[in-house]
Every structure is written in C-alpha cells, then in structure tokens.
Design a protein around this nucleic acid. Structure first.
Lengths: 335, 335
DNA sequence: CTGTTAGCGCGTTCAG
DNA sequence: CTGAACGCGCTAACAG
C-alpha cells in the first residue's frame, strides 16, 4: 500500500479529534503545560497509526529555514573530504542540522549552480579547497558561506577554517634537509590544481629550500603522477635524491615510477606525501607524510556556520598539522 | 549586501510591472503564445537584475515533488560508491533531477532516519549494498525505492540493479585454479560485512572450489586486513598458495602481511582483489581483480527510479563484471 | 488548556 | 494576452 497518499497533519488532527495546531505543538515537542498529557498521547498515537511524516517542504516554507547545510567539495574520491564531511555531519547532527554533500562537477572549477543541482533548500554553504573563482560563483548565492582550506585573505566568506599547510610543508622539508639531502637535490611533484592549498605548499617548499626546486605538475591520480615523475627523471643531470609530493596519491605514483627506473625508495630516492591518508600505510614502504586533522576542519567549519546563522561573530581559525615520519625517507646514499 | 532579503517572484513582478503569474510563466518557460515577447524579456531582465532565485521550499510544496533523489551508501570512503554516485548524478541531471548522497552513519546497519538527517525533501531513494534490515528501515519511508547490489529476491524495492557478483568470483577463482593452484591451497580473506554482495562472493567461491576454503573475516581497512591475514598464516599447516580477497583494500592489506612474513607476491602466494579500484594499479605488484561497472550501476539505478516515478514498470537488471589479470597472481611455486 | 486564523512563496486555475 | 484569487501543509500568533 505504498501508493496511499501521505497523511497530513490535518489527517492526524481529524483522527485524534483535535486541531492542527495541537498536533503541531505535540509533535514539535513544545506542549509542556499547554496541552494535556492525555490529549498529547492521543495525538502521538494517531500520528503513529497513520504513519504520519511532516512534509519537509511545507515546514521549510513556513519556518523560512531548512536546517540544512551544503558541503561543497572538489571531489568525492578522496579520503580527506570524506573525513571533512564526517566531522561536519557530526556537529550538524548535534544541532539538528543535516549536511548535503555536493561534489563540484568540474572538480575544482566553478561549481555549476550548486543550488540547482543540489536541489535541497539550504541555510548555508561550506566550501572546501575551492579555487578562487569557484568561490565567487558560490558566494553569489547570498547564503552564509564558510570556506575551508582556502585563502584566508579572500573576501566574501563569513568565516574561514584553515590548516597550517605552509607549516606542514616546512616541517617535512626540514625533515628531508635534516636527513642530509642537499637543497639542490630535492625535486617537487606538485598537484596540477590551482588552489590556495597547493600554492601554499609550493611557496613554503621554495622558502624553506631557499630556492625553487625542479617541479613537475600532475593531476591527483596515480598514473598521472607516475608519468610526471618520469618526466622529472628524464631531465638532464643526476636524478633528485628526494622527491617532495603535494599529496599521498602523488607520492604513491612517484614510488611506482621510481621503482620502474630501478631506483629504490628510500635507499636511492626519498619520497614524501601529504595528507596521511590510509593509503600512506598501505603501500611499501609506508609514506613519510603530513597528517591533517580533516574531521576537525569539518567540525570547525560547521561550528562556524552555525555561529554565523545564530548571528554570533564567527572568525578565522587555523588548525595545526603534524609531520609523520615513516619508511619512505632516509639519508641520501652519497652524503 | 548579503543581508538583503531574497527577492520573491512578487518582487520580480512588481519590478517588471506585471503579475506574479506572468513571472511564473516566463521563468517556467511556458509562455509561448501567452505572453508577449517584449513582456517576457522585461520579466527576465528584472529577475536577473534582482538576482531572483525561486524559493525551493515553496516550489516543492506547490508541486508536491522535489526532483530530488537520495542515494544511500554504506560508506563514502570508497571509490566504488563515488562512481555509483557519479553515474546516478549524470542521469539525474539529464532529467532535471538532483541527487543527495547519504552515507549511512552506521556503515551497513539500519540507516538512522535518512529522511530526518538528509533533510532534503525527496521523491525517491536509491540504496546501494545495504544489509537487509537497513532496507526495511528505508522502505518504511513510503517512497519509491531502488536497490543496488542487493539481494534481488528481497521484497519491497520497486526495482533492483545488480552486478554479476557471483560470476565475477567464479571467473577469478577459475583463473587461480587455471594457474595450477590446488583447491585445498586456496584461502579466503572475506569482508566482515553482512550483506548480499559478500555472501554471494563466499558462496560462489565455495561452489567453484568444491569446498569451503579456510576463511578469515576483516573489516574493509588495510590494517584489519593485515591482521586477518596474519591470523590466517598463524593457522597450523602450510600457508595457502593463493589468497582470494573480497575487495582490493583487503588484498592490499594481505600483501603487506605476506611480505611481512617473508612471503613474496605472487611468487610464494597469489593474491586477488575485487573492485578494480585505482588502488589496484597503485600497489606493487598490481592486483588481479574484478572490474565492476560502478557508474553503470548508478546510472541504471537512477533510470529505474525515474521510470518508477513516471509509472513505467521498472524491472530488475544484472550488469556483467570483468576479470582483470595483473601481476599479483602466478602459478604456485611447487605445482 | 485548546481551537481559529493567517500567511510563508510559489504555480495554476479562471475571469477579464 | 494578463491579473486576481486560491491553496499546497505547516506553524506562530491570538482568541476563547
């Protein structure tokens, strides 16, 4: 009988012999001292018997808010964003909010109308790791916006939650230098993505090395990273003794390419990742990388949005990151 | 100026000097021969100038449908589900629908009120790879339901889209047997998840081997798979010469454990995965596995839901899978 | 303690 | 060809 028309609150009222308003009060849990215990129970029973579910569209229209936030991410195939979502969803749930995930179709580019496609009616938007122009498209929605892992100097968003991306890159670079690698022997496998987070990494790396390292760019996929690494190895001169990668995925692809050229990790070439995804400990050797508190980012982002919605002054935050040393880095063979 | 109240269709009407109805007709693209070209243009201009966006809640309430489907998945940290989503979203978009992703919080267990948490108002639900009892919770919503990768015999859903899971397991098992592995030397690293898809795998494996292999169960995570494999190796008697895993993630964890015990893959032990995720070619050696047409599953699922919504008779489908032979399998050392 | 009333913003009649 | 009027289902005021 799934074809039965859905009962409305009026149906419940009729069945319970009360008015719609009473139903609303009882089911909305605001009847303390306004409706008799017995009447309340009648209403609840009637609702249950009819299988009543409030019509969200009507409720949203009436209340003018939906208790729903949109989380815009560049891609869904990435553990980091899954963890951001988890953190955001947890906080949201604690406040009776829902989170709808919107993977920006163009990857990192301008989100093509998130408000049309993610058809939900929204109270606010959280956007993670988006390019600046994508931000513009989103900011246009007129909704409160919290940016995650994006340029804190950018205008528009009500609040920003950031990671100490540059600090992480400095830490890992110093770790490699500390192992005895010469600045001139270090190369950079960069993500071919035009966002703040990756600009930061390149900048911090160059700053810490005191020079701009040989760099190849690659999309965030194993095969691409492999090819990019091969381009790096094909350059004239001796191969680097250490390869600093913008992401664990790139690092894994790099390891494959190096191995394919008869180079051993970490004996011949040290490799570092960034993110500390599950992948980092799945491969051999395990990756030296930078751990990111992804769920804290999501949680803080949702908290900031909730604060904004409640007219509390939301501000910018920066979360620390942590160097994780594992087996993919070692002193250079010829110190 | 983000604090400006959002303009309504009435505001647009006022600005354009026409009535609300005219605005609705023009913006709804149903004005051919009912509104003058010039008036229509005035309306469109006014709407653009004001930055008008129709209020979804009101529209949904009026129309009684939301053009939104919910896709329920057991976990978001999985490439397979990301691909299912992509396929579903593509088809949905072609039909003016949106897809909201709902990662069932309890993993595979009963989804705790997907209609409350995924606050969107919904026209239908697509659920992938869910346990039977979770299905019950969802089916209760009274919404059209399409099940993906679930027991086709289960009652309830309007339609089912399935993979030839058993066939895939038969193919990969025959491949291993064909390499010369003895049925008694083959072990099974099973997913510790109580769903149809994994029951099928175990059943098909046992059927093809003609016997129930030594089995360890593990959650879908590298570390767990590693420990499970160690338990397998700790069993009395000679180690297996081939290890058939329910998933690529398990296979990768197994490879780590084997290597830790001084066993080489595939020389000492052959290992197989299932899914053909990006991971399968990221590790060394690359995994022999079964490729799943995940986006086709999502696309078919959405098509079936759309058909159901349009009162077309939707039926069950089964999609073929494909064995992919790579470097992780080889003949046993002592044939 | 309970019922009546009004209106959220939209799309769709029906009368002009 | 256009505008006025109605109601989707719900909840917040207010009246009894």
């Amino acid at each position: 009988m799934t074809d039965t028309a859905r009962p409305t609150s009026r149906d419940v009222a009729r069945a319970a012999g009360v008015s719609q308003a009473t139903v609303s009060l009882v089911l909305g849990d605001k009847w303390r001292g306004r409706v008799s215990e017995r009447t309340a129970d009648t209403v609840r029973t009637a609702a249950r018997d009819l299988g009543y579910r409030p019509n969200l569209a009507a409720r949203n229209l009436r209340l003018g808010r939906t208790r729903t936030a949109l989380l815009v991410v560049p891609t869904i195939t990435n553990e980091y964003f899954a963890r951001v979502y988890t953190g955001a969803a947890r906080v949201a749930d604690d406040h009776g909010f829902g989170v709808v995930l919107y993977p920006s179709p163009e990857g990192v580019g301008p989100a093509r109308d998130p408000f049309g496609s993610a058809r939900a009616a929204l109270d606010g938007v959280i956007a993670s790791s988006m390019a600046a122009d994508a931000l513009a498209a989103i900011g246009d929605g007129g909704l409160p916006l919290v940016m995650l892992d994006a340029d804190p100097a950018a205008p528009g968003p009500a609040a920003t939650v950031n990671l100490a991306i540059a600090d992480g890159m400095r830490q890992i670079t110093r770790h490699v230098l500390g192992l005895g690698h010469h600045p001139g022997d270090i190369a950079h496998l960069a993500a071919d993505i035009d966002t703040w987070t990756f600009h930061e990494r390149a900048q911090a790396l160059a700053d810490t090395l005191g020079t701009t390292p040989p760099t190849e760019r690659s999309p965030l996929a194993y095969q691409d990273a492999r090819r990019a690494t091969e381009r790096l190895l094909a350059r004239p001169g001796p191969p680097p003794t250490a390869l600093i990668c913008d992401d664990d995925v790139l690092a894994v692809g790099a390891c494959k390419a190096l191995r394919g050229h008869g180079l051993r990790v970490p004996d011949d070439v040290s490799v570092t990742g960034y993110d500390d995804s599950a992948l980092a400990t799945a491969v051999e050797p395990e990756l030296t990388t930078v751990a990111l508190p992804a769920d804290a980012v999501g949680a803080q982002g949702m908290t900031a949005l909730l604060d904004t919605l409640a007219d509390h002054p939301a501000t910018g935050t920066e979360l620390p990151v942590r160097l994780v040393v594992r087996g993919s880095t070692a002193p250079p063979r010829h110190p």
